[in-house]
Design a protein around this nucleic acid. Structure first.
Lengths: 162, 162
DNA sequence: TCAATACCCACGAAAACCCATTGTATCCCG
DNA sequence: CGGGATACAATGGGTTTTCGTGGGTATTGA
């Protein structure tokens, strides 16, 4: 699975009173090159205190992969259960949200809480997927490289200036 | 078999005094994209204490899959028996119910008992199919990932708040 | 006739949609 | 090379539509 179009770059956008956020245009363009959906899938990131996001096609790909794995292992009860659990996490624990003509989504309240997103959302491209952070949480996370934190600080300053 | 449209997301809806439940709009849209039926098929889930649901087209697909499996294993009496059993479960032990113009089904009493559904129904997308749970039973099930239980709790809180 | 189901309408909250403004980067032409 | 025009991005606010839900009425079938 080598995806042609990769997510990259960073941006810091505001979450307004209604819970709306603009998805950065450079991320949207990747989504639309990968397929014709104007939709993103949101999930809690499995390791970091942030959200993971990708296009619907990527979710389908992930699903197909799981299916093939199951058909190989098959009848083992353990394998069956793990398949069920993964499927639940991959689909029930995610939300698909469309963005409108101006590129905004309505951040679902559940995801907003899972990601502890306040009134600022930091978008980070990570190749196959991208991440959405509360910038303050990123700065606090010891596992995040200092260079990346510098970028977050820069984006914050940039915003304060205007 | 790679289905194009997958069920995903979660929602907690009320079962009213008449036994009616709204199928969440985001699940209905998948059903209607997969075919033109405004109908769902309900079955007892084979592993969990919940119901499994899907569109009528998927039932046909499942049948074809069983057939192919039988042809591979062929004349083994064990395989024959298992085929018969699975076929029975796939068709006799299911109920097909249409939803009305406002997206509600009348939950069949038998299924309601099989799934131990009370006055709240938790819908969970799982890709090819979706599940319908009594939220309390999900919270009690040790095999369900904790992250997913968090989602169930969130949906319950959300409802209490309003 | 009676009970269960299908059909109809009605409401409040939430979400999707539309339009308008601002700032910024880009382009084009003098 | 500079400066005005242009296009697009992000954001604010108002309006319309949809969704989940409750309740009433007709219809059907035993």
């Amino acid at each position: 699975m080598a995806l042609e179009h990769l997510f990259q770059g960073s941006a810091l956008n505001a979450v307004d009173g209604k819970g709306r956020v603009s998805i950065p245009a450079f991320l949207r363009s990747v989504i639309e090159r990968r397929g014709d959906a104007r939709t993103i899938v949101l999930a809690k990131h499995e390791a970091f205190a942030c959200l993971s996001a990708y296009d619907p096609g990527y979710a389908a790909l992930k699903h197909a992969k799981l299916e093939r794995l199951l058909e190989k292992e098959e009848t083992s009860p353990d394998a069956q259960l793990e398949y069920q659990q993964r499927n639940l996490m991959a689909f029930a624990a995610t939300e698909e949200v469309p963005y409108d003509s101006s590129g905004r989504i309505l951040m679902p309240p559940m995801m907003r809480r899972k990601g502890e997103i306040g009134d600022l959302a930091l978008f980070l491209g990570t190749g196959e997927t991208f991440q959405v952070w509360n910038p303050e949480l990123l700065l606090k996370d010891a596992r995040i490289p200092e260079d990346l934190k510098d970028i977050a600080r820069f984006r914050l300053d940039e915003r304060r200036a205007s």
